[in-house]
């Protein structure tokens, strides 16, 4: 029977070894994905477009409704909350500024990314985890097929292509949500609200949001696939991988958004 101190030391050593292995695996994964993406960009014809289109359809088109609804409600809530405060100061028209800038720069990309992390990230992790359970990935490796190019690259490319589109849709419905509040609650003419939005919003705001969502898409796709590869080869392991993919994805989205917001703020100045 080992003493508690020795057991604790063994656990610490095991955790450190495990962390080290996972870190090595993560860096290996980043390298693999970067290499595969670079190869695909260099040889677009060799990209697996069938899979890419499939994942675009799955992650993008199927998320259209939920993204539209969530962003519309987000704009509505944001507009309503700001209207209550701004009405006190007679600054109702500035609801357009607040909603427009918040949706285009921050909330639009972020909400779309969170929805995608919930839908696509978990789906990717579950799919790859299940293939791992079925030893399909081992079979691919045995047959000399690079699983990264076949399984991961199409997913990430699909997300990179489809998430900006979803962000545009989300931005549009978010601004519409704010406008509904402006027109219905604040009695602002629709034209005035739209003119104000056009006045204060610039293409750079849209581009800023699109850049963010491309970064988010790489993170969501990458972490979803990584958690699938790292999953234990059993049913519970797949479930845990899916859950971990969503949580890690959201954490990375928020973290990267904070960093990018700081960078863009400095850049604007």
């Amino acid at each position: 029977m080992l003493s508690p101190i020795v057991q604790a030391l063994i656990r610490a050593g095991s955790s450190t070894e495990n962390f080290w292995k996972r870190s090595i695996q993560t860096f290996w994964f980043i390298g693999e994905v970067t290499s595969a993406l670079w190869h695909t960009l260099q040889n677009p014809k060799k990209a697996r477009w069938r899979e890419i289109l499939y994942y675009m359809d799955m992650c993008g088109r199927e998320a259209f409704q939920i993204v539209s609804l969530i962003c519309f409600l987000m704009g509505l809530i944001l507009g309503f909350q700001s209207a209550v405060q701004m009405q006190k100061f007679g600054a109702s028209i500035f609801v357009a500024d607040l909603v427009g800038l918040s949706i285009l720069r921050e909330l639009g990309p972020m909400m779309v990314a969170i929805i995608c992390a919930g839908r696509a990230g978990s789906a990717f992790a579950a799919e790859i985890g299940t293939m791992k359970v079925n030893e399909e990935i081992d079979a691919m490796v045995t047959m000399g097929i690079n699983p990264t190019k076949i399984l991961i690259t199409p997913k990430i490319i699909a997300l990179c292509l489809v998430m900006p589109m979803l962000t545009i849709v989300g931005d549009f419905f978010g601004v519409i949500g704010g406008m509904v509040v402006g027109v219905v609650q604040l009695d602002l003419p629709m034209q005035v609200y739209l003119d104000r939005s056009a006045l204060v919003l610039f293409p750079s705001d849209v581009i800023e949001g699109l850049i963010k969502c491309i970064v988010f898409s790489i993170l969501i796709g990458g972490v979803g696939c990584l958690r699938g590869i790292q999953s234990n080869p059993d049913a519970q392991g797949v479930g845990r991988a899916a859950t971990s993919a969503v949580l890690s994805g959201i954490f990375l989205i928020v973290l990267s958004d904070a960093l990018m917001t700081m960078i863009f703020t400095v850049w604007r100045m």
């Binding site: 675009m56 359809d57 993008g60 088109r61 589109m165 849709v169």
Partner: peptide, 17 residues
Amino acid sequence: ANKLKLGLFVSLSTFML
């Protein structure tokens, strides 16, 4: 992929952009 729906989605979002 459902190419019709995907095409509509891509067209719509591109138009919006």
